[in-house]
Design a protein around this nucleic acid. Structure first.
Lengths: 221, 221
DNA sequence: TGAATTGATTTTGTATACAAACGGGGGATC
DNA sequence: GATCCCCCGTTTGTATACAAAATCAATTCA
């Protein structure tokens, strides 16, 4: 959990455990660490110039989040899911996202509205430019904006965790430029339902949006 | 001395960290450890006859689950929520439960059906007997049966965690005997919607069920 | 030749120690 | 009498060491 804030001079206030966890997360997201790959405590300890203790803490945290899995006496690995499992994880994620959309539709503030619209504008821009990397980032921001708009940090937390967890499997889901435009249009439909404060429609819209993107993710993995 | 003390011959594989975490969970659920109460590493270490290391691991796991919170350099405490926060936690929980009901309605197997019916039978029995403790247990089993019936371990995991997390605040929610009957009747309505495989109705039914019980919980806390 | 035993290595869990950072209390200063 | 500062205890994070259990390999025995 977040310890404290910033660094002053030489030494960071963030613990080594956090730093390592963050670094590993990034490497996993970036695909440098592939699903199924082994992570050994001692090796990581040497690599980061620390002892096993903070490494263990980082690993156990990521394991609790489902990013890593513990093999039976054979070390810790980057989580690797079968198609079946992946499908179930995405199902859970879709339900959470739909719940978020539902709540947002019920409790929509002006600020959230602006934030969501801004994020969507970014998405459209990136989609029209055909910039895949930019779209990935903008899409992330769009969904995060919705999580925040729920006004419910607990819901937001779960949704974020799922997003993180599925990151490695969603990264390659946007094949061509038309897929970006499709996604952006799907966002717009969702926004319309949310802004009209129809919670049932918003929930369904989100589920539809997620489903289409999921199908592409499955094809890619 | 490491982990020798427990196993005489066979394999007792649970670690001290797990044992301590479990023990703490039970004490919290039982209300022996009240929200806001401090847990000090060294004290627990002595109490369980171990060193700080496994205690730390147990505490950090429970902290990650939101059961405990880390005070600012003043130790770890049993999570204590304001009415506001409690309200949001329950909202999140309700959405998860609703999602489960929705999924179950879409994918209902015979086995799950039987299990849910059996759990509900127990609930009715306890409610009619006016046995509050038995009803609490039966109610737990009923909801767990629904989680399992989703066929989605990831959804189940989240739902279970929320149930655990809110345990201390739900324990006293059933005031009188008529409240038990009310809850059991609410279950029945939910079951009807699930069994008719109407996912939207099931989801709404669950939300209604949870809302009524939540209101009672809020009154109690 | 195949199976079982055993020894070594790895992995995991725990103990203990140490260092840094924060908070509070007591004393000094005005 | 109030305020400020310094010191000290507590808490937290990390390092290192050790012990048990499990895996792997090799060797031995049937």
């Amino acid at each position: 959990m977040p310890r404290s804030s910033v660094s002053s001079t030489g030494h960071n206030r963030i613990s080594a455990a956090q730093r390592i966890g963050q670094a590993l997360l990034e490497e996993i997201s970036a695909g440098e660490l592939r699903p199924g790959q082994r992570l050994e405590e001692i090796g990581l300890a040497h690599r980061f110039g620390v002892s096993r203790t903070p490494v263990r803490e980082a690993l156990s945290r990521l394991t609790a989040q489902g990013i890593l899995v513990q093999g039976e006496r054979r070390g810790v690995f980057v989580a690797q899911y079968t198609r079946e499992e992946l499908s179930l994880i995405f199902e859970a994620m879709h339900e959470i996202e739909a719940a978020c959309a539902r709540v947002v539709a019920q409790r929509l503030g002006l600020l959230s509205r602006t934030e969501i619209e801004a994020a969507q504008a970014e998405c459209v821009k990136a989609a029209e430019a055909g910039d895949r990397t930019a779209y990935l980032r903008a899409n992330e921001a769009f969904h995060m904006a919705i999580y925040r708009a729920t006004g419910n940090p607990y819901l937001r937390e779960i949704a974020s965790e799922f997003r993180q967890r599925t990151g490695p499997f969603r990264a390659k889901k946007f094949d061509g430029p038309e897929s970006l435009l499709l996604s952006a249009r799907s966002h717009q439909a969702l926004i319309n339902d949310i802004f009209s404060e129809d919670s049932a429609a918003a929930s369904k819209s989100m589920r539809d949006h997620m489903t289409t993107s999921f199908i592409q993710a499955l094809k890619a993995n």
